[in-house]
């Protein structure tokens, strides 16, 4: 390591701490402070508020579905990308990164174009079959899936590459079929990467705002998720409720981070 002189070292530390403090710690701290300015009562009132409870339930439901779907497809696509050669593999790999670079609002609009019930490319057909996508939960789950898609894959792919296919080949030569090999050999080897990916996806899914706002229609009590509710309450001069709901979202994120922090050393082993 390069030796730095004492003033430079302190200067760098101050810069890093100052940056994180003014950008993250202070604003988040203020949200927490505002939540508790009126004592624990505001938090209790918020939790008993039917619209808030409904929004939290909806968020949990949408996030759970999105994470489950991304888990199944994410692991499948990862195995496909690492273990098999097929035409269009590089295009697929590039497309998977797209949600990271495209604004969620654009994602929402794109889904709207395809699935809306009146003029969408596929929407009228789906509605004819009794499935409302836009302004309903399927659309919100889809939007959330889209934005959180790369997280599981980007965790699992490097681990799959690193472990190689030696163990899988050995399992095959010992008589295991594809499913047995995956369940007994591949899955245990990638399980921490999968858990890590799931936690990240969950955090991302709970916090999704832009894409969900467009496809949900933001109907209070029906398609309003927690993040949408925070915005609505804030604009309705119900700041206390907005702060309290934000505090709950922060709490879940911190829980996710704690889980990740506990998992990371195990995954490294």
């Amino acid at each position: 390591m390069v030796e730095l002189s004492t003033p430079v070292r302190w200067g760098l530390r101050l810069l890093a701490i100052g940056y994180v403090f003014f950008l993250i710690a202070w604003p988040v701290g203020l949200v927490v402070k505002h939540t508790f300015t009126g004592g624990l009562g505001v938090l209790a009132d918020t939790l008993t508020d039917e619209s808030v409870a409904g929004a939290l339930r909806l968020t949990a439901m949408v996030a759970t579905w999105a994470v489950l779907i991304n888990l199944v497809f994410g692991v499948t696509i990862s195995v496909l990308l690492v273990r098999y050669e097929f035409p269009g593999k590089r295009v697929l790999s590039a497309l998977i990164d797209l949600p990271l670079s495209v604004s969620p609002v654009v994602v929402g609009l794109a889904l709207l174009l395809v699935y809306n019930g009146r003029t969408g490319w596929f929407g009228p057909t789906a509605e004819g079959a009794g499935l409302t996508v836009i302004f309903d939960s399927p659309g919100m789950v889809m939007a959330t899936c889209f934005v959180a898609l790369p997280l599981v894959i980007r965790e699992v792919v490097p681990v799959l590459v690193e472990i190689g296919d030696d163990q899988e080949q050995a399992a095959r030569s010992l008589g295991a079929g594809a499913v047995q090999t995956f369940r007994r050999i591949t899955l245990p080897s990638i399980k921490w990467a999968v858990v890590y990916g799931v936690v990240l996806s969950l955090a991302r899914s709970l916090g999704e705002f832009g894409a969900v706002k467009i496809v949900s229609g933001n109907i209070t009590g029906r398609t309003q998720t927690a993040t949408l509710l925070v915005e609505a309450k804030y604009q309705n001069f119900q700041q206390e409720t907005a702060y309290a709901t934000s505090f709950l979202l922060i709490l879940v994120s911190i829980a996710c981070l704690v889980v990740v922090a506990f998992l990371r050393p195990r995954a490294a082993r």
Partner: peptide, 20 residues
């Protein structure tokens, strides 16, 4: 026949042990 039906034992240069 796929590998799992050939009834052969295979030993790899880098052992290919099941680490877990």
């Amino acid at each position: 026949l796929p590998a799992q039906k050939r009834d052969v034992g295979f030993v790899f240069q880098h052992y290919a042990v099941f680490k877990h």
